[in-house]
């Protein structure tokens, strides 16, 4: 396991940051941490990278307890409030971080070139950070985090300031890292982003993990079936209610959730046998957005 936490908990005084979070992430995975504002995502990451101290519980990174200085040579972190010394130029900032990572001089020159290229800032390194746009600052921050070719990368909302192309580029960087066996922990609100890149996901709400698993498992738990039917009658509705008692009917469109793809054929037969004329039948995976909203709002009602 590259990341492993055991009941890690943080209280800011009496205020809950996050509670009893147990997460394990395998090598070579992109792990997505989702949650509404104030759920405790950043709190969790800040504990792992050593900015704040857990109230209780334990955590291990690359097999070593959190806070181990040597393992940090292989860890990159992009904070959510990225901010850098404005008086430095991009090149100054990168060589400063290279020296913090204790990269040797020759290697650091190469790496600086590489990461600048990777975040598409080549040529801008001679300007001061104070002249950078918000998105450029986030890019240079990502570049800093990528300097040591990290085995483990923490990205706290890495695309919050980026344009759509930048977001795609960051996604590609993550996929590229994964293909080299690196591990990424991604905090994000952008569900589509998480859905497309993450191998596994944990959803956190009010400081506690409410769901965790492979992206496919989480999304394939439920399927949504849309049927376009003419001549909807009560016997059709009654028999469909056996699958989903809360089905929605809108004109001639019926939307219901089903357990598996095997149900699709049965439902088609049922509609036809009960005298309906079937014009369309589309099963689709429930979107992460729905899963997310259901979980978070469901949590609110408790």
């Amino acid at each position: 396991m590259v990341i492993e936490t055991v009941d890690i908990t943080k209280y800011y005084g009496k205020k809950l940051g996050c509670r009893n979070v147990c997460i394990s992430v395998d090598k070579g995975q992109i792990f997505g941490l989702l949650g509404p504002n104030g759920a405790g995502k950043s709190t969790f990451v800040k504990m792992l990278v050593g900015l704040i101290h857990p109230t209780s519980g334990k955590g291990f990174l690359l097999g070593k307890p959190i806070g181990d200085i040597n393992t940090r040579k292989k860890i990159g972190y992009l904070p959510e409030n990225f901010k850098y010394q404005e008086w430095m130029t991009g090149a100054d900032l990168l060589s400063f971080h290279a020296s913090l990572y204790k990269l040797d001089k020759r290697l650091s020159h190469e790496r600086i070139e590489d990461v600048l290229h990777l975040v598409k800032l080549s040529g801008n390194e001679r300007y001061k950070i104070s002249t950078y746009s918000k998105g450029m600052q986030q890019r240079i921050g990502l570049a800093c985090a990528l300097l040591p070719e990290p085995d483990l990368l923490f990205l706290d909302e890495p695309t919050s300031a980026l344009d759509p192309i930048g977001r795609k580029e960051v996604r590609d960087i993550m996929l590229e890292l994964r293909s080299h066996g690196k591990t990424v922990l991604l905090n994000s609100h952008l569900l589509s982003e998480v859905e497309t890149v993450c191998d596994s996901i944990a959803i956190i709400n009010k400081g506690e993990i409410v769901k965790q698993g492979n992206t496919d498992e989480i999304l394939e738990g439920k399927l949504v079936l849309e049927a376009v039917v003419e001549g909807i009658n009560s016997s059709i509705i009654n028999s469909l209610k056996k699958y989903d008692s809360e089905l929605i009917i809108n004109n001639n469109k019926i939307t219901l959730s089903i357990e598996s793809k095997d149900n699709v054929h049965e439902i088609a037969c049922m509609i036809v046998e009960n005298g309906g004329r079937l014009y369309g039948l589309t099963p689709r995976r429930e979107s992460l957005e729905n899963v997310f909203i259901n979980l978070v709002e469901g949590g609110d009602q408790v």
Partner: peptide
């Protein structure tokens, strides 16, 4: 206050 520290203190430096 500015958060510059976040990226410094998480590097391999005591």
């Amino acid at each position: 206050e500015s958060g510059i520290l976040h990226s410094i203190i998480t590097r391999p430096i005591k």
